[in-house]
Amino acid sequence: MTTVSPSLRVSELAYAYPDGTQALFGVDLTIGRGERVALLGPNGAGKTTLVMHLNGILTAGHGSVEVAGLPVRKDTLGEIRRRVGLVFQDPDDQLFMPTVREDVAFGPANLGVRGPELELRVKEALELVGLPDVIDRPPHHLSFGQRRRVAVATVLAMRPEILVLDEPSSNLDPASRRELAEVLRSLDVTVLMVTHDLPYALELCERSLILSGGVIAADGPTRDILGDPGLLAAHRLELPYGFVVADRPY
């Protein structure tokens, strides 16, 4: 293990909803700086609940979450939310300002960034997702794929330690899906990708975790996990029809 604090460390995280439903039963995971990791799991496995803990929207019933060494607590929420960039599944939920420029500026402006520095952050983030030209457009005039990429830009503008994406490939047509993959691959940031899309996980993430029944059921190279039909079947995960994981990459 390295001496630098990992981007994300979750230990013994357990959580029950107020109605008593237990969603997480002791989750342990560590994600090193610069890693791209896929979090796989069937519906109802607790993926969203786990994600909500990463930036303190939900607070741990038991256990702890640390982002680059900083524990998630009430008094650290501001900094935690800067460090963890959450990209929601529906870009219409994420893009709520009248123009792309204001939306991308929203996060850094909340951090107190103003003036030319703010303008720079907005341009830089849109540049990173390959959409510098849409800056003055209203979000609802963009295509779905563009909206998803702008949603990524809105959190990149906060210069996060870790980017957490909820089902990034959902509802994208093949070209938008590839464009997003290219963007994600080009970023110099730790990525945690929550997904059902196993080929997308294989394409982008060297490592995968399976969250099932509220615990981490598997943790290893994506290639090994997807190559184990028994493991996948045990957790209601399936590769698309006709899809075979090649023995050697490309």
Partner: peptide, 16 residues
């Protein structure tokens, strides 16, 4: 959901 997204980007009750 929009409110959650706003909180996630540091919203604290007033628009910057």
């Amino acid at each position: 959901r929009v409110h959650l997204a706003m909180l996630s980007r540091g919203y604290n009750g007033s628009m910057p």
